[in-house]
Design a protein around this nucleic acid. Sequence first.
RNA 1: GGGGGCGUAGCUCAGUUGGUCAGAGCGUCGGCCUGUCACGCCGAAGGUCGCGGGUUCGAGCCCCGUCGCUCCCGCCA
Length: 603
Amino acid sequence: MHRYRTHTCGALREGDIGIEARLSGWCHRIRDHGGVLFIDLRDHYGLTQVVVDPDSPAFKTAEMLRSEWVIRADGKVRRRPDGTENPDLPTGAVELYARAIEVLGPAAELPMPVFGEQEYPEETRLKYRFLDLRREHLHNNIMKRGAIIDSIRRRMKAQGFFEFQTPILTASSPEGARDYLVPSRLHPGKFYALPQAPQQFKQLIMISGFDRYFQIAPCFRDEDARADRSPGEFYQLDIEMSFVTQDDVFDAVEPVLRGVFEEFSEGKPVTQKFPRIPFGEALRKYGTDKPDLRNPIVMEDVSDIFRGSGFKIFARIIETSPQGAVWAIPAPGGGSRAFCDRMNSWAQGEGQPGLGYIFFVPEGGKVLGRGPIANNLGPERTEALRTRLRLKDGDAVFFVAGEPQNFVKFAGPARNKIGDELGLIKKDRFELCWIVDFPMYEWNDEEKKIDFSHNPFSMPNASVEEFLALDPADKDKILALKAIQYDVVCNGVELSSGAIRNHRPEVMKKAFAIAGYDESVLEQKFGGMLHALSLGAPPHGGIAPGIDRIVMLLCGEENLREVVLFPMNQRAEDLMMGAPSEATPKQLRELHIRVVKPGQSAS
RNA sequence: GGGGGCGUAGCUCAGUUGGUCAGAGCGUCGGCCUGUCACGCCGAAGGUCGCGGGUUCGAGCCCCGUCGCUCCCGCCA
């Protein structure tokens, strides 16, 4: 007989009745009836009930056992007595009638229980992550994560992609995040950077003559966390292809994403053909470049209705500012003063002056708009609004006004809030889309200069000749320029960003010049890359969907920590391992490093 | 760096206008219990009400500061 087990705790069935079995696992739950004692023995595979009678030689040991002790139990598999079967358990028809129990790993009193679903503070859960991971919920999430990654690999390989490994100790990459630095022992005063993404490497792999690269790649960024953004490190499905257009990238990636979502969505519908929404349209309709398409609300510009109207606040905004506009957020079913007032106070809580509204009620066979805006706007214009937005009695419409570039930051959340409050969001589905035609540049109003809008390594959507001919002074033309860059969005979560790369050194130099960077800056920071591009680079492009976010969505979680094995807390600390920690003087000496803490003097 | 929310037993939380307000459930420990599977019953331990200061005859409750957790903004694909 094996030292520890003949079966796992999820294995025994009716067909095993009568055999001698040996199980090892954790004491999940112990029920002591004085005479007879039940132990739910748990391992990775499942749960089996172990029964110990007073006349069993194991009884004395069994009485000492506590939750989460690791034991080995030997005995005969027998049918549970009539009426005591547990249909909720795959092993529920049988039990192990214990003859011998060996304690393999006793447990001190637990800081948090494994049994049960009681919520525990994040801090405790992270410090004792191994206990939390024993719990069914997290355990399942992590296993699902592994299965999702397996599926992604399988799908990528089936499409002719090949997995490469890229360095972890490297130099800074083109993304704009803060780097994690690693001091060099051999080169005093010099540092490696951990890759923010294998961006330059994957491009170099294409320049090296390979094709269809992918990697489940660790990425390191020293930036602050969010619920959907891990501090420090995360994983991307990093992809790059040569001789491709944007359509080729979409054709390669869309089936992988759709396939993996369908495989793990547990029956929830998944978008079959991802719509392609231009960046500008996304802002206009949804107020964000990562729209949640489960929310049916589509905003509309209704400036013309307010222009010169009796509602002076909006009329004046449209008159006085060349960009001034009024957008309508239709709210089907929101047609009550109580709801509109509630949204108004929500807006004020968000730091807005308020959220204007009209709500529609039936009166004398007609539908009338109510509220201060309707009163000032007059019945004709109110009716024009209502028909344009296809609203009926019992509905409402909210307004955001000002310059769109300023109010979209509020309009998007308002659309989400209204959709959420009114129950309009079709949960239980995965709505994916591409966001395309990102602007290449944007205006930096603080520094009064043109900046890269996103990744400076994207190809501008113009011919080489056109682009090189751009006059840096022609601000409007430059700001109207699009990059061949795209995002994938699912349920309002940005999964990924990608681009056709700028593989022409002269275009790259021009692109940086427009953003005000001297050629020497480019040479200094990306000289290696530039040089590589000048020695025969294929047109290439790719994308890098966030693995953690995909898993989070498919597990139905709101926080990445629920799908990462050993996550750090929001302040980028590993409470279990105690990272970061101070280095010893010897380590620092070898690295030629002297630590100056905030408030200390360098001397 | 900034803003919001939270902080009472190991955990989840209650605690009224400032006046028996140091409480419940779960967990832990002890006792009883031969068919439970959220076992049941009895009992016990467990608290600087995050910390510091202030107002008050009196503070878990009000005020100021501070720390921690969390969500968001900045930042970041």
